[in-house]
Amino acid sequence: MKNGNAKSAKDTVFYIITYAIMVLLMFICLYPFYYVFIYSISDSSAAQKGLTLLPKGLTVANYIKVLNLDGIVNSFFISLARTVLGTMITVLACSFFAYLVTKELYGRKIIYRFVIITMYFNSGLIPYYLTMRSYHLTNTFWVYVVPSAISAYYVVLLKTFIESLPMSLEESAKLDGAGYVTVFARIVFPLSKPILATITVFAAVAQWNNWFDNYIYVQSDTLKTLQLMLYDYLNQASQISQMSTSSLQHGAAAANVTAQSVRMTITMVATLPILCVYPFMQKYFVKGIMLGAVKG
């Protein structure tokens, strides 16, 4: 009996410590987002004096100010467009190609190896940059969505999945005279929904977050993504203060919005889409990493 009590006391201590550490970890992961959020909805000058846990002087002035900044709305739509279009291209191209690779085409093994090898080397930044330039992709929207169309990793995941599908449906469709494209569109694609969902999520997050391609390939302001917009604002404090004065001249209601509030609000605008869709997508992330692990 005594022994049992000692054991459960030990357990209790273990649980308390572990729970405490886990709560602390959650706090460390979430607080930065929370802080930026309360900063973005707080009155600018009150926020400057210090915020910790609660917003001060609730206001939407920061958001109004940010939405009125030159190019912000445009960059939001560029980011959205590249995410939607880029993801669609990647998912369709990778899945159709993976489907073809599961079929008996000539040189199938060589073709598959030709794809796999690309996972283990790359040309490096400069040759790649010059290649994009020679294809006239620099300073176009296409550089966001075309080079990422086929990823060897996704092709591997999809091929493995498609190979596990039952052949019988496909064969009966074939007997009815359906071609490969029809079979793919009507049968294989719908049946692959679980893996397609995972890849859609991966590709979409990658598209939304990518700013380096914008940074090096695209100089045009009309094609600027939200992420790069944020990067520029973080690095050009002076520019923002100039903009504040110009908005003062315009007599905007949000005249006394500080540069810091602007930065925090743009950060929030760039993060919110991810935070909003995240809970719905989490299970697909987990599935994806497990599929990758099986492969590795």
Partner: peptide
């Protein structure tokens, strides 16, 4: 715990820079 600790993986480094700036700069919290 899993949900919350996974979130940071899905934001870009620019956003992490912005978060760090908010937290750790001289005027940061």
């Amino acid at each position: 715990v899993q949900t919350f600790t996974t979130i940071p993986n899905f934001v870009s480094w620019v956003i992490i820079y912005a978060l760090s700036y908010a937290l750790f700069s001289s005027e940061g919290v």
